[in-house]
Design a protein around this nucleic acid. Sequence first.
DNA 1: GCCCTCCCGGAAAGCGATTTCCAGTCTGTC
DNA 2: GACAGACTGGAAATCGCTTTCCGGGAGGGC
Lengths: 331, 331
Amino acid sequence: MVTLEDVAKQAGVSLATASRVLNGSTRQVGASLRARVEQAAAELGYRTNFAAQTLARGASKVIGIVVHDLTDPYFAALADGAMRVAAEEGLLVMVGTTHRDPEQEIAYVASLNAQRVRAVLLAGSRVDDPHVTGRLREELGRYLDSGGRVACVGQDLLDVDTVAPANREGAADLARSLAALGHTRFAVLAGPPGLLTAADRCAGFTGALAELGLPEPLVLHGPFDRDGGYEAAARTGEATCVFAVNDVMAVGALASYRDRGVRVPQDVSVAGFDDITTLRDHVPALTTVRLPLADMGARALAMALDLGEEARVERVSGEVVMRESVRAVEA
Amino acid sequence: MVTLEDVAKQAGVSLATASRVLNGSTRQVGASLRARVEQAAAELGYRTNFAAQTLARGASKVIGIVVHDLTDPYFAALADGAMRVAAEEGLLVMVGTTHRDPEQEIAYVASLNAQRVRAVLLAGSRVDDPHVTGRLREELGRYLDSGGRVACVGQDLLDVDTVAPANREGAADLARSLAALGHTRFAVLAGPPGLLTAADRCAGFTGALAELGLPEPLVLHGPFDRDGGYEAAARTGEATCVFAVNDVMAVGALASYRDRGVRVPQDVSVAGFDDITTLRDHVPALTTVRLPLADMGARALAMALDLGEEARVERVSGEVVMRESVRAVEA
DNA sequence: GCCCTCCCGGAAAGCGATTTCCAGTCTGTC
DNA sequence: GACAGACTGGAAATCGCTTTCCGGGAGGGC
């Protein structure tokens, strides 16, 4: 391994000078020495040892992103957005996938802290469990105390910079749009009871129906993924309109109906939430609430990077997108 | 920031003892001291500084994965498979996305080298450009010389451990299956001319047709992504059967036909390659060549981690999966 | 009872950078 | 021509941890 010392020796300069030339500094180095150092570095194929640099500088060029599942287009889009701004800032990205295990999430924060990463981005819904949340906050606190930066996409309950999608309002808007088509018997594929994103969307939807004086929807719990949607869709009974609290569940529901010969939208209308990119080519096209996912990832990271004392919360609103998976109730 | 020294002081032991207790070592530490150290660490909330550890040990607990695009299900699946084995081994993962820019790929390898990561996984097709490949090899050589491990998913032309999908053979099998349905006028959505994965699949397909004495297919070049497939599909002319060299292009092609009122499979048959998971719910179901993507990612990383002198090449064969997007030619 | 081993704890030398001082050289001004 | 001030180069301390080496105490075999 060729070290800075080797380069300095080869160039006939001191370690300090070599460091200033190759790894930047506020100080200037004369043109001739600079050239000698650069040439020596090129000849020997020198590469900075980031670990040493991080140790000496006390700050690294790495950020961390923690997501539930990279193969879920929702998280892929968030991560992609964040990675774009990381690349612009010349930062490297560590990605951790928790597969929805909160313990894993805590473990990742600890690891990222140990890496002294510059910022941590927590994507993915919080769960409604004070004990888990408490331990996560504790771990984050340790990291924040040592100068770390944290941003979160989702619920605002960690006292850190947060990009918070308007889950309640988006779901309520959707409910009103669907009710306007004449539907009265609704079902909600509501995901797991403890998952806050799921709960908020379900509550927003249900609340809006109540305000309109419509009957309560049938609320069906289940996993937050495609298969969860598939299974829950088998239990929607007499409902004429089904709201899945995220798109991947909605896609599962559509598959379920297709397999059972239930026509969408003729027999039942279906809507989702998120507007993941894979919907673009889905048949039938899914009605949903669009969130600017890549943007949200990018903004969250930008907030974390942009120093500032206060924990800020940026609300992101969703936009109802009507597509062919819903239709008006026959008169 | 609480350091190991703080812990040692609080526990009334030496730095060496504290290190042995908290960060592992071949040496034993007596039970009473061990307990004192552990308690002190817990009280102070000590977290190992990985940068310091990496520097001292000369080896890190991080691996790097370089992909083209995380939002592409193909790469997401590969990365997910690799991340699973990384998690099992207690390794952290750095992910770099190049967005198909070979310069970026080289830059990432350099950065990962600087990080002294334990292994690097290069996913994504090589390009047919000796200059770029040469520079990448040079950078990889530097990394390998300093004890790094590299594995590659794709073409075997970097002299490193490689998981090589049987692109030619898979495409040839597919061609034979499609020809058996009576098709004679084929088109290939062939992706960019210089991309080896695309070129191999196209060559395998074309070669098999030639062996069968069938006319040459219409070869249409374009980008390797969904939109590339969409656009190229507009130019397939009289072909009754279209092979897109990957699934995302095939999905784009299906969208193009749908938008133009061309029925699949009645008017034209369409097939892809990879069997990405999002196909599961696609309508019409796409005929394709299945690759075990997550497995491939996992095996590539396993190879890289499993020490050994020789660069091994593991061939992975694809399996033709016939689905409703193709049908026999009317008699 | 003695000697040899084995074990465990601690002191100290790295790992490869950064950065603070200090010293020497130039410039420019009066 | 002398002196302040601005730059540039280098020596050395430092970042936090690992690990070698050394020393002392305990245990076992004869």
